[in-house]
Amino acid sequence: MNTITEGLLSAAKLVVTLDPDLVEISLRSLRVTLTALVVASIIAIPLGTVLAIQRFRYRRTVIALLNAFMGLPPVVVGLVIYVLLSRAGPLGVLGLLFTPTAMVIAQVVIITPLIASVTHQAMRDLWADYHDLLISLNATKRQRIMTLIYDGRRTLLTAVLAGFGRAIGEVGAIMIVGGNIEHATRVLTTAIALETGKGDFALALGLGFVLIGMAIAVNLAIHALSGTEREGRW
């Protein structure tokens, strides 16, 4: 039997039998990534919107930084966070290294620039459309931001989903800051890396298929919840 079929079979077996280890690490993957996604979105969406509508002194610099941060290698992000969180580091007292929280922090750092940057581009176009009307209606700054976020929600959803995709599949940074500890910080991607290293390709592939399935399921679920397809484009 070739490796792919074996992988599919072992994935099917893991899922059908609701393998406890699989369930545990899948749920942890989801929890870490969704937490990171919520935190990152809360930071990135208002940030991207403000960058689109507000002129201030270092606006261009911030945008350039964001774009640069989008390309940060996750391994380096992991390394920096490791140094910050390690016992001797400035945040060492918090004792966060090798916990899911550390993994959330790493993912937030990785996806916030991505979501903020896509948000900024989308909101810039919408603002060009709305600018005169909102100024004319005397909308306060807060009302302008809320209006743009609300009317741009479909594009924002795409930004958030892109962030989810990047975070759920990330391995380098969370391996470093999480440590891939069984029953503590092991998630799908780090488990895949581990099994591949051990030479258990079938199990690694099985986990990989579960990961892909989960990513697709979350995408579909979010789309269904927000009614993107039903209402179509405005």
Binding site: L126, D129, Y130, D132, L133, S136, L137, N138, T147, D151, W234
Partner: peptide, 15 residues
């Protein structure tokens, strides 16, 4: 607060 403006090309909110 007591003025309104209708622009040369009408601006429709995406709502």
């Amino acid at each position: 607060a007591r003025q309104a403006f209708v622009f040369q090309s009408p601006i429709m909110l995406r709502r």
